Computed example of a mutant assay.
Amino acid sequence: MTAVQQPGTERREEIEANLADVGDAVQRSSSVNSTHPPRLVAVSKYKPASDILAAYNNGQRHFGENYVQELCEKAAELPSDINWHFIGRIQSNKCKALAAVSNLWAVETIDSEAKARKLNDAWESAGHPHALNVFIQVNTSDEESKGGVEQHQVEGVACTIAEECKKLRLLGLMTIGSIEGSHQCPNPDFLRLCQLRDDLNAKLGLNLELSMGMSDDFEHALELGATNVRVGSRIFGSRAPKALQ
Rank of each mutant, 00 (worst) to 15 (best):
L210W: 09
P48N: 08
V4P: 03
Q245I: 00
I15D: 00
A116Y: 11
S141W: 08
C159I: 15
L104A: 14
S44E: 08
A20M: 12
V154E: 00
G213A: 06
L104Y: 04
H36M: 03
I52M: 11
L204F: 02
G59A: 09
T140V: 13
S80H: 13
R89I: 04
S50Y: 04
P37A: 06
S44F: 00
K203Y: 11
N228V: 06
L53D: 08
L104R: 14
V107N: 06
H183Y: 12
G127R: 10
W84H: 09
L196C: 09
P186F: 04
D21F: 10
E209L: 06
L200W: 05
I161M: 00
F86N: 07
N66K: 11
S50F: 02
S178W: 06
E73T: 13
A55G: 00
K47W: 00
G181F: 04
N57G: 08
Q91A: 09
N207A: 14
S211H: 00
P37H: 01
S29E: 08
E180G: 11
C165N: 00
T175D: 14
G64H: 10
E73G: 14
D217K: 07
F236E: 03
D21N: 10
L208A: 07
S29C: 00
L196G: 00
K94P: 07
N120R: 07
E163C: 09
A100Q: 15
K94C: 07
C72H: 14
E65W: 02
F63R: 07
S125R: 15
S29T: 02
G225Q: 07
S92V: 05
R12G: 04
I82K: 02
E223P: 10
I110L: 05
T109Q: 09
D216R: 15
E16N: 11
F135L: 08
V101L: 15
S112K: 11
Q27L: 11
R89T: 10
N58A: 15
S92I: 09
D21V: 11
E150T: 14
R117E: 10
Q27N: 13
V107K: 06
G237K: 03
L168T: 04
L206Q: 12
D199K: 11
N187S: 10
E143P: 13
N133A: 08
A100K: 13
T160R: 12
G127L: 10
Q245W: 04
L104V: 10
N33V: 02
H220T: 11
T2C: 10
L171Y: 12
A122S: 10
V101T: 15
C95V: 15
K166T: 06
R117I: 13
Q69W: 08
A116R: 07
A226R: 05
R192Y: 02
A131C: 09
V231R: 05
F190H: 03
H36K: 05
R28M: 05
W123K: 01
A240D: 12
K74F: 01
D51P: 00
W84C: 06
I90H: 10
